[in-house]
Design a protein around this nucleic acid. Sequence first.
DNA 1: CGGACCCTTGAAGAGTTTCAAGAGTGGTGG
DNA 2: CCACCACTCTTGAAACTCTTCAAGGGTCCG
Lengths: 256, 256
Amino acid sequence: MRAPTQHSITYMAGARPHGGCLTCKMHFRCLPRGLNERDTVRVEGLLQTRRQLKCGEYLYQAGDRCDTIYAVKTGCLKTHVCDEHGYEQVTGFQMAGDLLGMDGIGLRAHDFNLVALEDSEVCALPTARLDELPPELETIRRYLHEVMSGYIVRDHNAMIMLSKMRAEERLAAFLLDLSRRFAALGYSSSEFNLRMSREDIGSYLGIKIETVSRMFSQFQERKLIDVKNRHVCILDSVRLQRIIGRSLPSKQRRVG
Amino acid sequence: MRAPTQHSITYMAGARPHGGCLTCKMHFRCLPRGLNERDTVRVEGLLQTRRQLKCGEYLYQAGDRCDTIYAVKTGCLKTHVCDEHGYEQVTGFQMAGDLLGMDGIGLRAHDFNLVALEDSEVCALPTARLDELPPELETIRRYLHEVMSGYIVRDHNAMIMLSKMRAEERLAAFLLDLSRRFAALGYSSSEFNLRMSREDIGSYLGIKIETVSRMFSQFQERKLIDVKNRHVCILDSVRLQRIIGRSLPSKQRRVG
DNA sequence: CGGACCCTTGAAGAGTTTCAAGAGTGGTGG
DNA sequence: CCACCACTCTTGAAACTCTTCAAGGGTCCG
């Protein structure tokens, strides 16, 4: 199920990438909305290069110096972290248009590992160059703030999932999230290939691989999805959606 | 167990706070390390005012406009979020020196709710004023980046806890974290009052209130802690520490 | 003193993990 | 091209952990 690299262009380190942000189908996700053409070209000038990653290759690992922000151009990656006790967990999956590497801006060293789940291509922006931004490109810096706080929001949703949902709900939420993300990239929302293993899914959802497998089978039996290996068809997104929230107590206790 | 407000000064909105950051015992946590006296005063000039919060009072709620960053001066608060399905969860507890309100910088609206667990006092910095910062105070803006990425790291640790630890480990990790934080503030690391209810703890740890209670009792029986209502003594932090990591499989599967 | 609220405890039950075995898949080399 | 191997995934049964339900005790405050 390892998708072949879509582009096989390679660049020398430091070389200006071919056809820049303006021609990239993902620029509407990497760059702030409403950035004019002239400024887009200027941002592009800050970009160091693209980088090709083979499936399984690390873009960076926890502890590496953090001096670059990345944008996924093609492919799919996962982030995973390890705590001081040796517990390890997948914290997210990144696809085209997602920005990466902001976890260590403060620390100057990365907090987590970033590895390609299939052959991928990323654009690199050295953080040092952010300081070169002229005042009129303040938008860019502000945009990075936005993306970072978006991370926080996304992590909070993940925390709720990990804390409150049952296995069934977790997998349903996961599939629907993927579906939405594929749709946002212009792909089919009802049929797609999983780039990650059951083990990765389990780690991300906080359940064991056997449970992931059982839930897939159960969904298939209930005709909610059709799944064969890593190929998934969403057959009934409405009922899938309805699964989420089922374990809520009827008399909901508010924590506030 | 509701601690009385330590200072009962009140300020009119917009008034310059009494004795500013320089005299505040927490400035070493709110402000970047190594900020000189002159610059500290300049930052102080950006501060709008302090704000008093009664126990149970909200500083802001999800959806509120996000235009201010806060620093906790005294007291304790909790953040809690609600997802689209109605699930709700406490995502963290904030004490003196912690910075708050950065969750919504990108969104211009807050993602979560912030409520005082005891009478508290916070300093407010309108985000609009951040743009007034002269270039030589770039440190400040960078510091906010750091704090934000610190949030991400902290959330990831919380995710590992929610995903991989058993109830016993969660409570142990929680108590040790509190202990460390109190120590960092100059208070006793072995004896402190919990500001939050069992319900809050359970929500934060992703376990039910009954389980929290059982674990407290169990720890007490094993002479790891001494607990009476919300007063906690850590009797054996070494063994408490050793609880964490117990449920790791001996042959550790690496996700990478 | 009474009531509200928070906390504790027990017993039964649900959900997930663990352990174990086996099937399917993809890659390699004869 | 097939056999073989490593790896991933699936499935079942038993064990375990946590939750649910229920009841009662404690504490604080009017």
